[in-house]
Design a protein around this nucleic acid. Structure first.
Lengths: 195, 195
DNA sequence: AATAAAACAAACTGGTCTGTATGGTGTCAA
DNA sequence: TTGACACCATACAGACCAGTTTGTTTTATT
């Protein structure tokens, strides 16, 4: 089986290097604040190389969100794997690592929400990624509610996923040690209300 | 008493006209997407006039958030005035108008949160406005919790204001009729949990 | 060794951005 | 009437933007 492109190993590494550099710059400073020239310089590559792997900057932004999406669900799955048989414990564990994450020093909010704020046009390629990411959150929490045999798992999921989105954007107004108890207490309150 | 500036009446109207035009453009398309030239054109004024009333674009952005802040608390106070003697009814009424607002067709999220996403540098003049706005939300909800003689009004306020911020950024992932029951039910759940 | 893909550097296109400078017009007050 | 000031229109400075073009060098496969 001959490879379609000349050098797959290096080519994949190149794409990933560009994406990693762009991702950290985009996340830290915002997408519109970072020009492709800076990405090129910081990645130590030629501009032509960037545009071979990504048709436009908008596609690079969408790839950034896809990367963040994958990393987020990876973290989620890692925690879920430690609570295979107890959906309530799993849910509380999720609140724990999310609280820990939003309280971290360099935390700058949810990349999906930030990009959505920067690009109001719903036709932007990154907006589709953001939409699916948020939908997936609702689906996963609803599945947990179903496994807990709640009467209204959809309502529970809507409420809790809205709250989690709130945690992502409220980190600056929450005092450092506050995130953890607030997330835990609210989850407990919603659990008992929707039980 | 001589007026410090030549023509106060017109000058105030001019500033407000610029600010109104800029506000709707900023809110609809994002701040970084709107150049001062476009604001000038749409306001039907000269660029020199804009820069006489606002030192820089950043100050115009801060004024935009101050305007939105004032309008938001005006709406809040209007509702509060109709429930002077019943803090629980007032709180549920707030959930009502907020739900109605985020479900409106042209709703693009909370301007404070959107600007915060566009300008990560915490030194930006608009970020101070955003910070105070979010703090004020916590203060007001805590005051309601205190009037309800809750044991932990600060915890209640933290939880509910995080949730409200979540509602602001989740409007796109909520189905049209969903916002109202989700906000009402969650508020009820938190009320009974923190009672 | 030959071929092809992919990387490099650097200039360039055509446009946008914030902010300033210039000069002219209308209005109000001393 | 004279001066101060707000306003207008236009042009400009200097930087940055996304994306293309050109031509050379590296790298990998055949």
């Amino acid at each position: 089986m001959t490879e379609p492109a000349g050098n797959n190993d290096q080519a994949g590494g190149m794409r990933q290097r560009i994406l990693e550099t762009a991702s950290s710059l985009f996340y830290e400073h915002g997408v519109r604040a970072i020009g492709v020239d800076l990405v090129v310089e910081r990645a130590g590559i030629a501009k032509t190389s960037l545009y071979r792997h990504f048709r436009t900057k908008d596609e690079l932004v969408a790839a950034f969100l896809e990367r963040e999406d994958a990393a987020f669900w990876q973290a989620w799955d890692d925690v879920a794997a430690r609570h295979r048989d107890d959906p309530e414990a799993e849910l509380l564990a999720h609140m724990g690592w999310i609280a820990e994450r939003v309280a971290r020093p360099g935390y700058r909010g949810c990349p999906q929400i930030n990009v959505a704020a920067e690009f109001p046009e719903s036709g932007h390629p990154a907006r589709q990624v953001e939409y699916e990411h948020k939908r997936e959150m609702r689906r996963r929490i609803q599945a947990l509610g179903e496994r807990m045999q709640m009467a209204d798992p959809a309502g529970f999921s809507a409420s809790l996923s809205v709250f989690i989105n709130g945690a992502f954007v409220s980190s600056r107004v929450l005092d450092p040690g506050e995130a953890k108890p607030v997330l835990a207490d609210t989850a407990a309150a919603l659990l008992s209300a929707y039980r």
